[in-house]
């Protein structure tokens, strides 16, 4: 564990807390893509199946359970409790366009052809693009509430900090996992445009509005 990874995990937890708090406080999930949240739930479920087969640390297991639990809770809020506020007309990204390529890619580009390993690989590929329905929704409506922007910034920072962690681990431990690194870079690059808008608009107390 190094400082980058700790910061990354904390940013990830912060993102989840911001999202749950926003939905709960406003009693609404307007502006939130349920499809991205379905993809994230799928990511955690596929990746953290190993909670039953391999033990890394108390920290790891606790975080895995936390991510599984909170993603389930988020889906419950969007698709059950506050379903009337769910903006499904604007959440029109076809997730099959992400699921199918990720599934095929994980069958061909993996570290080992075993069930758990392929599911892990699939989750890594899927996570890298899981935010696209949400970004698509922001692009479609042309705006995002500040709180949604904070959520996206925290969530984007998490994988960017993991990239720093991987650079550190490569130097300090000669450890690297090419699949995670490339997918992490793709994931971070997808947020770049948003990061730019966040820094130039939201941090100046302006609403995130895209040019028409």
């Amino acid at each position: 564990m190094n400082i980058f990874r700790l910061m990354a995990d904390l940013a990830h937890v912060l993102a989840i807390v911001i999202l749950l708090h926003k939905i709960w406080k406003s009693r609404s999930c307007a502006g939130i893509s349920g499809k991205s949240q379905i993809l994230f739930a799928l990511v955690y479920f596929m990746r953290y199946l190993d909670i039953m087969t391999s033990y890394v640390s108390f920290y790891n297991s606790t975080m895995k359970l936390l991510f599984l639990g909170t993603s389930g809770a988020t889906l419950n809020l969007i698709y059950r409790k506050f379903k009337p506020s769910y903006d499904h007309n604007h959440d029109s990204f076809r997730i099959a366009y992400l699921l199918v390529p990720c599934a095929l890619l994980s069958l061909f580009l993996n570290h080992e052809f075993s069930v758990l390993e392929i599911l892990w690989t699939f989750s890594i590929y899927l996570e890298s693009v899981a935010i696209l329905p949400q970004l698509f929704m922001v692009a479609k409506t042309g705006e995002a509430e500040s709180i949604t922007s904070h959520y996206l910034f925290a969530l984007g920072s998490y994988r960017a900090l993991y990239v720093c962690n991987w650079v550190y681990r490569y130097i300090a431990e000669s450890h690297f996992d090419l699949i995670a690194i490339i997918a992490g870079l793709v994931q971070t690059i997808l947020y770049c445009d948003f990061f730019y808008l966040y820094i130039t608009k939201v941090l100046q107390n302006r609403k995130l509005q895209l040019p028409a």
């Binding site: 990746r47 890394v56 975080m63 895995k64 080992e112 993991y162 431990e173 996992d177």
Partner: peptide
């Protein structure tokens, strides 16, 4: 050094 398919990160 760990085998590559031991995933110790989240």
């Amino acid at each position: 050094q760990q085998a590559e398919n031991v995933h110790d990160e989240l």
